[in-house]
Design a protein around this nucleic acid. Structure first.
Lengths: 272, 272
DNA sequence: GATTATATTTAACATGGATTAGCTTTTTCG
DNA sequence: CGAAAAAGCTAATCCATGTTAAATATAATC
């Protein structure tokens, strides 16, 4: 069964090493948690089993609303979602982009009431995990630790966004966001070379960085004209990763992804 | 012994109810964790015991640096500290203010390497808790859950800061930050009525909100001239809490403090 | 208590990004 | 496939906040 599910996630098969091929068989959740935790077959099977009853949700649909007290946890199986807060004047601030393998609300049963909402951006598949099932999983110390690690990385990403919004100008901030999303997508096997699906509108990018869509448009054109990226029809290609990293001050250390043999490299080094 | 330590934290004794008086005997850590968790005497004693070997640290001293892999956890006993990241051009972004009862780095052993630094702002007292001792504490389910809750609230605060920096103007953002710090100080018994110690320079406020100290100065004067606050010599008084809350769009829900009888009210209702 | 360092205040001027509005292209959906 | 909606693009104008620099006030240090 695990293999069957995993077939859905065959993505980047560029690497020729067997290890890379093995990784591609994991669901994004397992790929992500294995960034740090060593999981055994039973751990992996329990996680993969969560994918069984994922529901299809259309684009721009609410997953949870502020004030909700859901009794189950949501896991992104496919598609993109955004965590956001609305201000009294109707302005929206996105505080996280959720991609496959991300939990929407691992915390909510401990915290009580949701203090923000989550909506899909694209048509998505979302797994609904009852609280009791989640508690059963966290009884396994290896999984409890993996979830704990995942929460802490989410926190590190939030800190990084604060820096991005507070102290970088729009050009650097957008470049930085692109680098971050690239590394995260790569890490779950959803980037093909330096190309990946980025199904965000310019308005959504602006809502994440505290900018207007008009200004995002100006900056994207500059990023294109300086040959750092190309971006059309929801497909982003990084033309010069090193240059983009430098221009935006990106340092992936806060994502806490260890450089291991079985992790895909961010830059392809052609085997000569 | 618990009483002896707690004597250091006699703060707001304004409330006449016995429950308020009892609360004042707790250390800030216990006061904070009891926001949500029900702790028994043994839990409380274990936590209070952490205060035993706190060390004095001068103002503007580093507690941990980016890249460190400390083998113990730091707990703020007294004074203020800031979590921050530095940019290549020397700019600083503060991502959190740490007050008594806050852990500096509850996470670091799981995450590996620090991706940011922490420095004191004022002369402080900081407890150093060896990793093993921390693990012993988290074997008690009530404490494990309390620490987990505390981490999740920290995360909620980070999301709130993103909104503050991304979508509010300087006037609203500074008002919002003041409301947040007031509620947090009140919650650990360190606000006297609507007054509390706020030992931040205008530059530090700016570094937290992505503003320059010049502009912070302009805005603080407007807050004073509109009679919302007074602020001098590190002492902040909220002159009109409701008005400040409205002007800044502050909603304390993200701090996840339940309104219980034994919590101090944010606004004094004079007993007629 | 004098001296020095740090923080606050003020002012003149510069600018990155917001606002508004109209146009074009792409996507969605009947 | 064709119509309608959504997203992308462009340009003109404006303003909140940045920059620089100097004066004053407060706090730290010997």
């Amino acid at each position: 069964m695990a293999a069957g599910l995993a077939m859905l996630y065959l993505g980047d098969m560029a690497g020729t090493q067997q290890q890379l091929a093995d990784r591609a068989l994991d669901t994004p959740l397992v790929a992500k948690l294995q960034t740090r935790a060593r999981l055994n077959d039973e751990d992996r099977d329990s996680l993969n089993a969560l994918y069984a009853d994922a529901r299809e949700i259309g684009a721009r649909r609410s997953i949870i609303r502020e004030g909700d007290r859901p009794d189950h946890v949501h896991l992104m199986v496919e598609g993109w979602a955004a965590r956001y807060k609305l201000l009294p004047d109707g302005a929206r601030q996105i505080t996280a982009f959720l991609i496959p393998g991300d939990f929407c609300d691992l915390h909510v049963t401990i915290l009580g009431e949701m203090d923000h909402g989550i909506s899909t951006l694209t048509r998505s598949r979302v797994a609904f995990i009852p609280r009791g099932r989640m508690e059963a999983l966290t009884e396994r110390p290896s999984l409890a630790k993996a979830f704990w690690w995942s929460t802490l990385v989410d926190e590190a990403v939030l800190r990084s966004w604060i820096v991005n919004i507070g102290r970088r100008d729009a050009f650097e901030a957008i470049g930085h966001l692109i680098c971050e999303l690239y590394v995260r997508m790569k890490n779950i096997g959803l980037a093909d070379g330096q190309r990946f699906d980025l199904p965000l509108t310019q308005e959504e990018i602006g809502d994440a960085l505290g900018l207007t869509s008009v200004h995002v448009n100006r900056v994207l054109q500059r990023l294109r004209s300086e040959d750092l990226i190309s971006f059309r029809q929801g497909l982003l290609t990084i033309r010069d990763y090193r240059a983009l990293e430098t221009a935006s001050g990106f340092n992936p250390n806060y994502l806490h992804i260890e450089r291991r043999v079985d992790r895909p490299a961010l830059i392809e080094t052609p085997a000569t």
